[in-house]
C-alpha cells in the first residue's frame, strides 16, 4: 500500500443554492475496496460523478491515480477510472449492440486489436461470444450489467467507480454481480469505490467505508467494525438498525434518536 489512489479533500459541490456535497474528505489506497454509504440524497453519487469527470463544477482538491482531477482531460481520465452505473436498463444505448458499445470505447482510445479485446473482456465478465452482437433488449438485467462492467474494463483502468451496481437487479443476480466484481478485483488488482445504501453489500465487498449524511461524511470506519455493529456515530447506528429490516422496536429507537440527534 503506497500513497492513496483516490484522494479527496474538502470536496464541495453546489447545485444552485443547495449544497450536495459539503467538504468531503477521504482517501482510498491502491487495491483497496472502499464503500460510500448513506441514504438517498446524501451526496454519495455526486462524489462518484465528480471522480468520473461528469460534474466539473466543484471546489476542493481531488486526485485520481496521482493526477489532479482539475487538470485532467476527460479522455485521459477515462483510462484511469471508469464508472459503472446503477441501472443497466438505462446505461446502455437502446440502439447499440454490445459489439458497438465496446467497439466504440476501443475506437475512441485507439486500442490495438479491438476484436481480440472485445472477446477477451466479454469472457472476463462471463459472457460468451454469442452475446457480442445482441442489442440490450435481447439481454437480461444481469447480462446488461455485465456488459456495463465490460465497457468499464475494456480500457483496463486501475480504478472502478461503482454506483449502486446491484440495486436495480433482483437478489440472485445481485450475488452474481458481486461475485464478478470480487473476482475481477482479485484478478486485476482493481481499486473499487462502491456507492450504495445497502450495508450488506458494503460488508461483503469492502474493507473500509465512509458514511455520508446530508452531503457530509459523518464517519469513516473499517468493515470489521460495521460487521460487529460498533459504530461511533448515532446516525451510523440508525443506518445499521434500519438495514436489518423493519421491526417495531427498531423503528421506535430510530424515531427516538432522530428526535434527540
Amino acid at each position: 500500500m503506497t500513497g492513496p489512489v483516490i484522494s479527496v479533500r474538502d470536496l464541495t459541490v453546489r447545485f444552485g443554492a443547495s449544497v450536495a456535497v459539503d467538504s468531503a474528505t477521504f482517501s482510498v489506497g491502491k487495491g483497496e475496496s472502499f464503500g460510500l454509504v448513506g441514504e438517498s440524497g446524501s451526496g454519495k453519487t455526486t462524489v462518484l460523478r465528480v471522480l468520473a469527470g461528469l460534474i466539473r463544477d466543484w471546489t476542493g482538491a481531488a486526485s485520481v491515480a496521482g493526477h489532479d482531477l482539475k487538470r485532467q482531460r476527460p479522455r485521459s481520465l477515462a483510462r484511469m477510472a471508469q464508472l459503472v452505473f446503477q441501472d443497466p436498463y438505462a446505461s446502455l444505448h437502446p440502439l447499440h449492440t454490445v459489439d458497438r458499445v465496446l467497439g466504440e470505447v476501443a475506437a475512441i482510445h485507439r486500442l490495438d486489436n479491438p476484436n481480440e479485446r472485445i472477446e477477451a473482456v466479454l469472457l472476463a465478465v462471463g459472457l460468451g461470444p454469442e452475446f457480442r452482437f445482441r442489442f440490450p433488449h435481447q439481454l437480461s438485467g444481469g447480462q446488461r450489467q455485465r456488459v456495463a462492467v465490460a465497457r468499464a474494463l475494456i480500457l483496463e483502468p486501475t480504478i472502478l467507480l461503482l454506483d449502486e451496481p446491484t440495486s436495480a437487479l433482483d437478489v440472485s443476480v445481485q450475488a452474481e454481480i458481486l461475485n464478478l466484481l470480487r473476482r475481477l478485483r482479485a484478478e486485476r488488482g482493481l481499486t473499487l469505490l462502491l456507492v450504495t445504501h445497502n450495508l450488506a453489500v458494503v460488508a461483503n465487498l469492502c474493507e473500509r467505508l465512509a458514511v455520508m449524511r446530508r452531503g457530509r461524511i459523518v464517519e469513516t470506519m473499517d468493515a470489521e467494525r460495521l460487521r460487529r455493529a460498533e459504530p461511533e456515530q448515532a446516525y451510523t447506528r440508525q443506518l445499521i438498525l434500519a438495514s436489518r429490516g423493519y421491526d417495531r422496536a427498531n423503528a421506535a429507537e430510530i424515531a427516538f434518536e432522530t428526535e434527540v440527534g
Binding site: R49, E104, I108
Partner: peptide, 26 residues
C-alpha cells in the same frame, strides 16, 4: 439527461460523437 449519454462521456466520447452516434439515431 439519460445514463447512457453520461456513460458515453465517461468513456471519453467527444461531443460530436455523442450527438451523431448516440443522440441523432434516437
Amino acid at each position: 439527461a439519460s445514463d447512457f449519454i453520461a456513460a458515453a462521456r465517461v468513456i471519453g466520447a467527444s461531443a460530436t460523437r455523442i450527438v451523431v452516434g448516440h443522440v441523432m439515431p434516437l
